[in-house]
Computed example of a mutant assay.
Amino acid sequence: MLIRVVRMVFQAEKVTEFLEVFNESKDKIRGFAGCRHMELLQDHNDPHIFMTYSHWESETHLNNYRKSELFGQVWPATKRLFAAPPVAFSAHQFPDALVAETLQNR
């Protein structure tokens, strides 16, 4: 499983518009092949910063979404509302058992 986090800073006057875009597309994204989970987070201290947090079956599934017609509609509508470039990264879970195993094998 691949975990994807995208941090987005919005123009203050565009936050409501972003929430409208998100609300209209969230179920379609969640229903996209390979998407296991997707939620929206808001920064605790800055109400103009949001993050999408999603789980994908694989990098291939995420890339298929990024090449899709849906992404081609959602991303440009979101991108024009930014106050700063987005920051995105992908990660895998690192279970406690793997931490212990790694430390044991040192």
Results as ranks from 00 to 15, higher is better:
residue 3 I to T: 07
residue 5 V to E: 05
residue 7 R to I: 04
residue 8 M to E: 03
residue 9 V to F: 03
residue 10 F to T: 03
residue 12 A to I: 10
residue 12 A to G: 13
residue 13 E to Q: 15
residue 14 K to H: 13
residue 14 K to P: 12
residue 16 T to V: 10
residue 17 E to L: 11
residue 17 E to N: 08
residue 18 F to W: 09
residue 19 L to V: 10
residue 19 L to I: 03
residue 22 F to L: 15
residue 23 N to V: 15
residue 27 D to L: 05
residue 29 I to A: 04
residue 30 R to I: 04
residue 30 R to F: 08
residue 30 R to G: 06
residue 32 F to H: 11
residue 32 F to G: 06
residue 32 F to A: 07
residue 33 A to V: 06
residue 33 A to R: 10
residue 33 A to I: 01
residue 35 C to A: 09
residue 35 C to G: 03
residue 35 C to R: 00
residue 35 C to K: 07
residue 35 C to W: 02
residue 36 R to H: 11
residue 36 R to V: 13
residue 37 H to V: 01
residue 37 H to A: 14
residue 38 M to A: 15
residue 38 M to I: 15
residue 40 L to F: 09
residue 41 L to A: 15
residue 41 L to T: 10
residue 42 Q to R: 15
residue 43 D to K: 02
residue 46 D to F: 14
residue 46 D to G: 12
residue 47 P to L: 12
residue 47 P to K: 06
residue 48 H to K: 03
residue 48 H to R: 12
residue 49 I to C: 10
residue 51 M to Q: 06
residue 51 M to S: 06
residue 52 T to K: 09
residue 52 T to C: 08
residue 52 T to W: 05
residue 52 T to E: 06
residue 53 Y to A: 07
residue 53 Y to K: 07
residue 55 H to P: 02
residue 56 W to N: 00
residue 56 W to E: 06
residue 57 E to Y: 01
residue 58 S to K: 11
residue 58 S to M: 07
residue 59 E to G: 09
residue 59 E to Q: 04
residue 59 E to L: 05
residue 60 T to M: 12
residue 62 L to S: 01
residue 62 L to G: 06
residue 62 L to R: 01
residue 65 Y to P: 03
residue 67 K to M: 12
residue 67 K to V: 08
residue 68 S to C: 07
residue 69 E to F: 01
residue 70 L to K: 04
residue 70 L to R: 00
residue 70 L to C: 00
residue 71 F to E: 02
residue 71 F to Y: 07
residue 71 F to P: 02
residue 73 Q to D: 08
residue 74 V to D: 08
residue 75 W to L: 06
residue 76 P to W: 09
residue 79 K to C: 02
residue 80 R to C: 04
residue 80 R to P: 02
residue 82 F to M: 13
residue 82 F to R: 10
residue 83 A to K: 14
residue 85 P to N: 09
residue 86 P to F: 05
residue 90 S to C: 01
residue 92 H to G: 02
residue 92 H to Y: 07
residue 93 Q to R: 14
residue 93 Q to H: 13
residue 93 Q to G: 11
residue 94 F to W: 13
residue 97 A to M: 01
residue 97 A to I: 13
residue 97 A to C: 01
residue 98 L to V: 13
residue 99 V to S: 02
residue 99 V to A: 12
residue 100 A to K: 09
residue 101 E to G: 12
residue 101 E to V: 10
residue 101 E to A: 15
residue 103 L to G: 00
residue 103 L to N: 13
residue 106 R to S: 12
